[in-house]
Amino acid sequence: MRLSKIKNGLLLCLLLLPLQAWAGDDEVIAVTGRAEVAMVPDMALVNLIVMREAETAAEALNENSQALEGVLAALHEEGIKSRDIQTSQFSIDPRYIYPDHNKPRQLVGYTVRNGLSLRIRDLSKLGALLDKVVTLGVNEGGNIQFINEDPAEAVKQARVQAVQNAMNTAKTLAEAAGVKLGDLVHLAEQSAPPRAQPVMLETHYAKTAARSAVPVAVGENHYSVSVSMSYEIKQ
């Protein structure tokens, strides 16, 4: 009988151990903090496309190449370095017409597209540069993304502010609950890419219309950081 009671007591202790450990792990204050820092962009990523159509692939390619050479020359004249110019796409596609359902399609020509990705480091030149390359042959594209070449300082500030925000929240909760904060037992970060709206530019102009530099709004990039923190509760 006595041996049976000892066994039952040991079994009860073993069953309680996981529950006690789980309860101890829960004796924390868990909080999150978030901060966002704005930074004015200092660089633009621009995608431009020269598209030409002709009856033969060779003619379309020749016309496209001539137009692209003029665009590249203009970019270099404006101070854009070769390291900031990259071919992003190239394609030669046949063009067909479909007379009706009873006749086969007919080949009527070819389309050649040659795309460039640019890094514009002097944003004060961006509007005039876009206007110039359009007059020289760019007739598709125009997507712009404003970025920061080195956002490290903005991200650092967001980290500091997010941690401080979480710490203040933890102190407020502890005071409201009438307890004291113990050691920090958990800290994790979640950062998000900068939020910036892409700018779409119209690249169709009337040949006789008077025009000035394309208006461009740079705006701001917003770098956000979120952190989660857990503190022990002092007994």
Rank of each mutant, 00 (worst) to 15 (best):
I85M: 14
I85R: 03
Q86I: 07
T87K: 08
S88Y: 03
Q89H: 08
Q89R: 10
Q89S: 15
F90Y: 15
S91C: 13
S91G: 12
I92Y: 01
I92A: 07
I92V: 15
D93N: 09
R95Q: 13
Y96Q: 10
Y98L: 06
Y98R: 12
Y98E: 13
Y98W: 10
P99V: 14
P99L: 14
P99G: 12
P99Y: 14
D100S: 09
D100A: 08
N102T: 15
K103E: 08
K103T: 14
P104R: 15
P104M: 13
R105F: 11
R105G: 14
R105L: 10
R105I: 07
Q106A: 12
Q106G: 07
L107P: 10
L107Y: 12
V108R: 14
Y110V: 12
Y110M: 08
V112I: 13
V112K: 01
V112W: 00
V112D: 02
R113F: 04
R113C: 04
N114I: 01
N114V: 00
N114T: 06
G115T: 05
L116N: 00
L118M: 05
R119A: 03
R119W: 00
I120P: 00
I120G: 01
I120M: 07
D122H: 06
L123P: 07
S124K: 15
K125E: 10
K125D: 11
L126W: 05
G127A: 08
D131E: 15
D131K: 10
D131Y: 02
D131W: 06
K132G: 00
V133G: 00
V133K: 00
V133F: 01
V134M: 05
T135M: 03
T135A: 09
L136D: 02
G137E: 00
G137N: 01
G137K: 00
V138L: 01
N139R: 00
N139P: 01
N143S: 08
N143M: 06
I144H: 02
F146G: 07
F146D: 03
I147H: 06
N148V: 07
E149H: 11
D150A: 09
P151Q: 11
P151T: 13
P151F: 10
A152L: 11
A154V: 06
A154C: 07
A154R: 02
V155S: 06
V155H: 00
V155F: 14
K156Y: 13
K156A: 12
Q157Y: 06
A158R: 00
V160N: 04
A162S: 09
V163H: 00
Q164Y: 06
Q164A: 11
N165I: 01
A166K: 02
A166I: 01
A166S: 07
A166C: 10
M167E: 15
M167Q: 13
M167C: 05
N168S: 14
T169K: 11
A170E: 02
K171M: 11
K171G: 02
T172F: 03
T172I: 03
T172L: 06
L173T: 09
E175S: 11
E175T: 08
E175R: 09
A176K: 12
A176L: 14
A177V: 02
A177T: 04
A177Y: 11
G178C: 12
G178T: 09
G178W: 05
